[in-house]
Amino acid sequence: MTTPPAALPSNVLQGAGVGASAPSPAPIRSAQKEGNLGTFGVKSGLAQMLKGGVIMDVVNAEQAKIAEDAGACAVMALERVPADIRAEGGVARMSDPKMIKEIVEAVTIPVMAKVRIGHFVEAQILQSIGIDYIDESEVLTPADDEHHINKHNFKVPFVCGARNLGEALRRISEGAAFIRTKGEAGTGNVVEAVRHSRAVNAEIRRASVMNEEELYAFAKDIQAPFHLLKETARLKRLPVVNFAAGGIATPADAALMMQLGCDGVFVGSGIFHSGDPAKRARAIVQAVTHFNNPKKLAEVSEDLGAAMVGLTIDADLKGGHMAKRGW
């Protein structure tokens, strides 16, 4: 948590096509309000409210309640946690809307859900059932191997994964209001999340001392839109909230990502594949708040039972390297 995502200058991030073409639930409301719904300010603003918090993967209403009771600031509804997607294989898709609705009913915190990369119809469906955030996620099997969703077309905000600064800024230019590291989901191994977070930070530090000519060349180099790169260099951080995700399994992992400058963490398989999910979830929530206090971290790390079994990330990794998905 270095500096805050300052309020964004509206000319920087508002894409051309902000009109909502995707269907949305339409209760009666005034024309005045209609025009001010789903602005980039309220999309990135919700991510700002989630900062310093833990977003937990859940596969049913019962897990969602455990997560909420343990202090999750939001839950991610999905059919199978990444570790199971790895183990079982096959095509991983958006979850059954009925299951997502049950989770929305069960908790009062924001509910997120995943869609496949490029699958804008899955996103339209999730928007129509009133989900709070969509994760266009590499954990599911991509539906388009060239294009991501045009996220400006939606009122619901999107979070996307990124391994480096260029990827993060491409996602923001498509309308993502929230970025996370990809890590390597479902491995319980934090090494990739660390690599991605360090890569983004290092590139931002380099950009922050460049003059304009160098920024033009750097933008070309990392395939990032120039105006977003320039804004990032000025802010010395991503212009939207940036969470850690992929492989976080312990309170210490979560605090590590926070000390590396992330604004909060996603925990997937790490919780419900551990020995005592409620206790571990609560410990990780506290670790994210007190990430700079080793004494407190020691206290919350005590006696959590078995952590999820971790996987080594090598060429033979079962289920493949999900972080490579995304273009």
Partner: peptide, 14 residues
């Protein structure tokens, strides 16, 4: 009342 306007798609500026 928490979330008085409903889910995030009802969030707005005025």
């Amino acid at each position: 009342e928490r979330n008085g306007w409903g889910s995030q798609v009802e969030s707005f500026e005025a």
